[in-house]
Structure formats: C-alpha cells, structure tokens
Design a protein around this nucleic acid. Sequence first.
DNA 1: CGGATGCTTGATGTATCTCAAGACGTGTGG
DNA 2: CCACACGTCTTGAGATACATCAAGCATCCG
Lengths: 245, 245
Amino acid sequence: MPDLATLGIEPLYRLLSRFMALDPADRAALSQLEGAALCSKPARTDIAREGENPTVIRLLVSGWACRYKDLPDGRRQIVGFFLPGDFCDLNVYILSELDHSIGSLTAVRYYEIQPEQFQDVIDERPRLTRALLWHEMVASGIQRQWLLSIGQRTPVERLSHLFIELYYRLKAVGMVHDHAFELPITQHHLAEANGLSLVHVNRTLQEMRREGLIELADRQLRILDFERLKRTAMFNSNYLHFNRD
Amino acid sequence: MPDLATLGIEPLYRLLSRFMALDPADRAALSQLEGAALCSKPARTDIAREGENPTVIRLLVSGWACRYKDLPDGRRQIVGFFLPGDFCDLNVYILSELDHSIGSLTAVRYYEIQPEQFQDVIDERPRLTRALLWHEMVASGIQRQWLLSIGQRTPVERLSHLFIELYYRLKAVGMVHDHAFELPITQHHLAEANGLSLVHVNRTLQEMRREGLIELADRQLRILDFERLKRTAMFNSNYLHFNRD
DNA sequence: CGGATGCTTGATGTATCTCAAGACGTGTGG
DNA sequence: CCACACGTCTTGAGATACATCAAGCATCCG
C-alpha cells in the first residue's frame, strides 16, 4: 500500500485520465504543480471560511475534505466531498468573496497553488485546459445529483447513491480494492451531507447491512452486491463523464 | 412595459453588468450573438433531454425554463431555474452526453449558438470571458445554496429563500417593480424545486401569506416585508456575487 | 482513571406525505 | 352556446417517516 501523501500529482493525473489520455508533456506540465507549497492540516479543521477572499487554488493530495455551508443557527450542510486529486476551488479566485467554507474531515495534505503559477501550467496546453474544465463540469454534475438525492431519494437510496459515487471516484484514483474502500468519515458527516439526522443515518445503515447491500466497520466500506446497490440507488454513472476505462 | 421577446441580448448585458462594467466594444461583441438562430417553444416542453449529445449553447431571451433531473419511477427534481439572460449550458458541449434535462416552464425564446460562433465573440475579449466565467460560478453557487435549502431549511425558510433569490435575479434583468414580479410557474413546480409535496407547498404559501410575508395571486408575487422575509430565509446575498449596483 | 468521540438503542412527538375530493377558471368541440 | 375536460389551487383525513430527546456502551487517549 503506497503512502498517498507522497504521491504528489499522481491522483490528479489518474483522475484526468478518466476523461482523456494525457501525453507525457501534459504530465510534465502538471508536475510543475509539485513545486507549490504543500500544506498539512489535522482532521476537522477549516481550510477556508465563507466570506474570505480566495487567493489560492487548492489541490488535495491526501485525506478527505468537504465543502460546506452553514446557517447562523448552526445547521450545517455538506455540499460535496473532496477526495485526493480534487481541486477545491479551481476558479473561485475571480470572485471577491467565498460563498462557502472548506473543511478537512481527516488529516489532509494539499498544495496551495498561486493563480499565476497555475496559469503557467495550462498556458499553451489546450488538452490540460480542457481536462480541467471537465473536472469542473463533473463537480457541477455531482452537485446536481446530490440535489436529486436529497430532494427525491429515500434515505436508503440516498446513502446507496453516495456510496456508489464514492466508489467510482475513489476507484479513479486507485483507492478501491475488491469493491471495498476506506470511508474515513463519521455517521455525523454522512448525516450532514444527506440532510438526515445522525440517528436516522445510523438506522438506515443498519437496514442496508441487514439487506446485505454493504458491510461497514472500522472505517472500511465494502459493497457486497454492487448491482443491487446500483439498482437501489437508481444510479446512472453518466454524470461522472468517465469517457475512458 | 417593453416586450421582452424583442430585447435580444439586453437581459444578458444587464446581468453581466452586475459583475463588472462592460465597455461598448464588449457590448458590440455580445450583439453578434443576435445573429444566432432564435427558437421559440411553448410552455412545458423539453428543450434538451438527458443523454443527448450537446452541440449548441442556449441563451434564454424570454420566459422561464428549468434544469431538472428525473428518476426511472417518475420522481423529478428541478435543480435550477433559467431566467431571461441566462445561459443554459455554457460549457457542456465539451461533454459527450448531457447528465440532465432542460425544459421550458412558460413559453420561451432562446438563441441557439454554435460553439465556434461563441468562441468568435469571446476571443480577444478577456473581460467578457471573465464575466461569463462569473456567470458559471454564480450558477454553481446557486446550486450549493439550493442544497443547503433542501437539506437544512424548513419549508417556510426554503420558499422564502427561493423568492428572494428570484427577486435579486429578476431585478438584475429589470423584471422587478416595487418588490413585485411575475412568478409564472405553478405550485407543482415549486414543489419539484424544493423537494416538497404539492399539498405542502400550498399550505406553506398560505402560512407565509398569513404571516404577512408575501402576496401571491394571479402569478404575481409581491414581497410585503422584505427585511423580515430575508431574516426568515437567513438570506445572505454573497453567493450571487453582484459586485456592482 | 476520567473525559472525549463515535456508535447504538428506545421512546415519543410531529412534520410532512399520501389519498381523495371539491371549487374555480379556461379552452375546446359538438 | 353549452357541456365537458383539463389544469390549478384548495381543503380534509389519516398514516408514517423522520426528528428529537435521552441514555448506554465501547474505544481511545492523556
């Protein structure tokens, strides 16, 4: 098991490769990003806060983070997960104020890339530019899918769908083995991401285990019946736009 | 009252102006878009269907449309509204398959713009390019806000928030007068957008009327107590990123 | 040992859905 | 011109899915 913290741009490279084949020159250009400042944060820490003026582009290398929004009275909604290889905020630096927060869920490592440095990398590299645009479009598609889940799917369907989404995204960066992957977040996080109470998430997970859909213990999630889970979630992978593989 | 159907790129121009001042040359460049094919569709018609291969960029000129996703069993979630001046799918043409559908809510008119034609307009116009990127970022911010609404806000808060969002967006294109605007959609649409049942939307609206927050009749929505409605919704306009005005 | 943190379970209340039906307005065809 | 269908809004009754409150237990850690 390789130490992901040492992998640099490898997860990003693997991810973009799901969309289009990149050539060695593209890969070399991406490698320049490894010159950026590498930051580490412990679990449960704010990486950026709503209202701040964004100035850097963050590329997650290891660990899990999330985008979230909260209300004055403390209610909180996780609106997306960041996995290794994900950019947290590719274009927000054109805005004067962040409209959401970013927080680590586990211990994380990420590059803080200056917009100019980033520009240097994609300049004259239309394939890379295209691949990064794709990354943004997928992020947007995932948000739409979450809206469908929270608005219309039942709790079992919702969690099923999320698990399959995570399965595909983690597989793209080589973090799935044998239909199992590490799920390093708490039931509380699952609740905040799915618009459910913690208690209800717990009972829903039990139901899914009873149904033989998943196994979940010690932060390891194993999908026991992939096809049935997909049917339960009414999962259509088109929104991830994985052209290759 | 001007006939909006004749306004061409005027709504778009007004909208982008909320972000940055555009100069006459930018405006002239945008005007080239008026050479594109102008399409008309009646209410309740699909403009694009999930699974299709997107080839054109659509710019809504008049009427309301929506982006939606549906499940095999018929459940449907509206994930966003398109108002005059909005692009429906600025970048999706790089994807091979649409992951959502677009449908008209009222009778609509929109331009169908070829990607190459679009490229000609923004080429060598960094300000326009930037403004259009902003348009995309705002659309993405609105999706996050909807996720927060559906996941955490109560029905009254949810509808309040949506009405204020629509108020600001319609005001930006000059379609609000005296805190009132036309709301040409049905309670059924409000239900599909907010993850609520039709019956519950009806009762929630009654409650809001009883509370003196809004007046809603004959497709006209009037906000009676703007500040209180904002407080009720816990509305923070930062996500619309209107720098000017 | 004491205090976090996370998972689990039970009891209770209620917000919201579902089903069903009626009222009203509008357009359509006989 | 009337009859009828259709879309929209409204109301009532009943069922239930989900939240809330509360507590217990395990594990980890200083």
